[in-house]
């Protein structure tokens, strides 16, 4: 959130033109913490709400700030379709690998085998590789960072403001209470150290290799994975037809 706030200050775009939209969850509350126009919507619906805002007033710089459960599970359909349409909004997805606000349940990004309160014997499901999903869906910009990569994260959020089309950054965030303690990561700081030890900056790495399993010794790849210029969505105008 600090990176987002700093990016707003550095953007040169008047603060009154920045709008943040969030869904439900821990990161959904971000809308209430920002002193800009902010909309805290229903669970999963932040993206279509943001699409309506942006299309009704293209002057606005619209950012969706929400979690992996909100964006990729209950809101998953909206996520892929907004990326496919390439609507000019930015999405910051805080991924903590579980539903934290409700007390640590299985989510769409929970690694296979990880324990949560609703997967007490280990998750039997394969998780989403979010950058892979977004790249396949048609987003113009896809990146992943963690809460220790503050400079890179701020830089990329700033870049997303001016990047036409749909941009998406996944931010790995510690959730020591909901996810960590059931998976042998005691404190938030321990997860930060884990990021520090295992993260490998790998811009442009094949996106199908971006799956994450916090419990193994596999590297966690971070960086910018997609930066392309597919045509962004714009409403049909008569002059385009004639």
């Amino acid at each position: 959130m600090r990176c987002y706030a700093q990016a707003i200050l550095d953007s040169g775009i008047p603060q009154d033109n920045h709008v943040v939209v969030s869904g439900i969850g821990c990161s959904g509350r971000v809308a209430g913490y920002m002193k800009i126009d902010s909309y805290h919507t229903t669970h999963g619906r932040a993206i279509p709400f943001a699409v309506g805002l942006k299309l009704a007033n293209p002057e606005l710089t619209v950012t969706v700030f929400s979690g992996d459960g909100d964006l990729a599970a209950i809101g998953g359909n909206h996520l892929i379709h907004a990326a496919r349409r390439n609507v000019d909004i930015s999405v910051i997805c805080a991924n903590n690998f579980n539903y934290g606000m409700t007390g640590g349940q299985l989510g769409p990004t929970t690694p296979f085998g990880a324990r949560t309160t609703t997967s007490p014997y280990g998750s039997p499901e394969l998780p989403f590789n979010l950058p892979y999903l977004l790249a396949a869906s048609g987003a113009n910009f896809v990146a992943r960072w963690t809460t220790i990569h503050v400079r890179q994260l701020k830089r990329d959020i700033l870049y997303m403001f001016s990047k036409p089309g749909f941009s998406f950054v996944e931010v790995l965030v510690p959730c020591p209470v909901g996810f960590g303690k059931m998976n042998f990561i005691d404190e938030g700081l321990d997860e930060m150290l884990l990021y520090k030890e295992r993260c490998v900056i790998a811009d442009g790495i094949p996106i199908d290799e971006l799956g994450i399993d916090l419990r193994t010794d596999q590297p966690i790849y971070v960086g910018r994975f997609i930066d392309r210029d597919l045509a962004p969505y714009r409403p049909v105008r008569l002059e385009d037809i004639e």
Partner: peptide, 29 residues
Amino acid sequence: FPEIGGVFIQMEDEMGSMAAVLGASAAGA
């Protein structure tokens, strides 16, 4: 709508439709 400057968008479902309508309303439309 294209001839009068309106925005028509066919959404992915009715939950998204209603959310988009509210977003547009929040922007003043």
